[in-house]
Amino acid sequence: MHELRLMWRNTRMVVLCAISAALYAAVLVPFKVVPLIPGVTELRPANAIPIVCSFLFGPAAAWGSAIGNMIGDFFGGVGPGDIFGFVANLMYGYIPYKAWRIIADGQSPVMRTPGTIAKYVMVCLAASVLCADLVGWGDNLLAFRPFSILGNIIIFNNMISALVLSPLILYGVYPRVRAGRMLYTDVMPELRERPRAIRLAGLAMLLGGELGAWAVGNLVSTGYWIPAFLPAGFAISPYDKAIAVTVSPLILVALAGAWLM
């Protein structure tokens, strides 16, 4: 994760970050008026942009995704929950290129072999689930909205964009950006990775943590399962305290995994 800090020293990466954010916001804001469930989420074809930018600009896209979402949030109402939205979108832009480098290093994301398609779906799903977990967890902690609404709608919304739109944009853009030597590996050649074993352990922690958080978050926020060790006062709607105790450790595991990647 050190590249998230290092990239701010590189002027070209700062500009690419702003461009990623602006592209994301430019598609996000016009669709703010097309809510799927008002007050919860809107139609978000813009969610294709962070995935595309992640493969192209790496850490600059991660910050761009967070800033672009923040700009979009100003038009749908900012609140304490948007701090979680900022981190969630940072991860949504961060996970795809990091996970890709672990499971498909050296391969182009626009290759159309069954193997690369499966890997592409996996990295998009990993990014979408962590993003959904962070927003759902944060909003339920603040008792604004239940985890089970946000945690699922965000995965659906992100995956639709990532599977339907992102590959087409990537297919058009990736070869040109690579030819123009504007990929993050060209702009920041000084980037160094941790040993592969550590990165693989990080990926395993990320997947375990985020899938666990998603399952537990859904069960607890709907009241289907409350761990026996929780006091009775925690087992009442809106289940904010129960979510804090049960989901937070899993979120921490997922974030620690992302840090190790």
Binding site: T11, R12, V14, V15, L16, I19, A22, L23, A26, V27, P45, V52, V164, L165, L168, I169, G172, V173, R176, V177, G180, M182
Partner: peptide, 28 residues
Amino acid sequence: RARRYVPVVIPVFMGALRKANNMAMALE
């Protein structure tokens, strides 16, 4: 319909990237 907008995104994307290099040089 969403997929039909992809040909719109690509030129906007490439136009933005063309700006990026000049912008970085101007900033520096």
